[in-house]
Amino acid sequence: MTKKIEPGVLLTGGAGYIGSHTFVALVEAGYQPVILDDFSNSHPVVLQRLQQLTDRDVLCERGNVLDTSFVAGVLRRHRCVAAIHFAGFKAVGESVQRPLMYYSNNVGGLLSLLQAMETTDCRTVVFSSSATVYGDPATVPITEQFPCAPESPYAHTKLMCENILASLRTSDPSWRVGVLRYFNPVGAHPSGLIGEDPSGIPNNLMPYVTQVAVGKRSSLNVFGNDYPTPDGTGVRDYLHVTDLAAGHVAAVDALLANAQSFTVNLGTGEGTSVLGVVRAFERASGRTIPFEFGPRRAGDVAQYFADVSLADSLLGWRATCNIDDMCRDSWHWQQRNPDGYRNSSGISLNQQSGDLAQPKPNDPLLSPIGI
Rank of each mutant, 00 (worst) to 15 (best):
E162C: 03
F146S: 11
G135I: 13
T143P: 06
E144A: 05
Y154T: 03
H156M: 15
T157Q: 04
A149P: 00
E144G: 08
L168Q: 12
G135P: 13
G135N: 12
P150Y: 10
P137W: 10
M160G: 00
D136N: 15
P150W: 07
S167M: 04
I142V: 15
R169Y: 10
N163A: 12
E151W: 01
G135E: 13
L159N: 07
T170I: 06
P150V: 09
S167R: 06
S152G: 10
P150F: 08
G135T: 12
S152D: 08
K158C: 08
N163I: 01
L168K: 12
G135D: 11
S152H: 06
C161Y: 01
I142R: 06
T170G: 01
S167N: 10
S167Y: 01
P150T: 08
C148A: 11
E151S: 11
K158V: 03
S152W: 04
E162M: 02
P137I: 10
H156W: 07
P150A: 11
R169E: 14
G135L: 12
A155N: 04
N163C: 04
E162P: 00
E162N: 02
S152F: 04
T170L: 13
T170D: 12
C148K: 12
A138W: 09
R169A: 14
C161G: 14
C148Y: 05
L159P: 04
P150K: 05
E162Y: 00
C161H: 01
P150N: 10
P147G: 04
T139K: 14
L165Y: 02
K158P: 03
A149S: 12
A138D: 15
Q145R: 13
L165A: 04
P153F: 03
E151Q: 15
H156T: 13
T157A: 08
T139Y: 09
T157I: 04
P137D: 09
L168P: 01
L165K: 02
S167G: 13
A149C: 09
T143A: 14
M160F: 06
E151D: 09
S167D: 09
S167L: 06
S167F: 00
K158I: 02
L159R: 07
D136A: 15
E162W: 00
Q145F: 09
E151C: 09
A166H: 03
Q145A: 15
A155T: 07
A138T: 14
E151Y: 02
R169F: 03
E151P: 00
F146R: 03
S167C: 07
I142S: 06
E144N: 05
H156E: 15
T157C: 10
P150R: 07
A138L: 14
A149K: 09
L168G: 02
T143S: 15
L159D: 04
P150E: 11
M160E: 10
Y154C: 02
D136G: 03
A138G: 12
L159I: 07
I142M: 11
P141G: 13
G135A: 13
A155Q: 05
A166D: 03
F146Q: 06
K158E: 03
N163V: 01
S152Q: 04
M160Y: 05
V140G: 06
T170H: 10
S167H: 05
A166P: 00
A155D: 06
E144W: 04
R169P: 01
E151T: 14
E144P: 03
Q145W: 02
T143M: 09
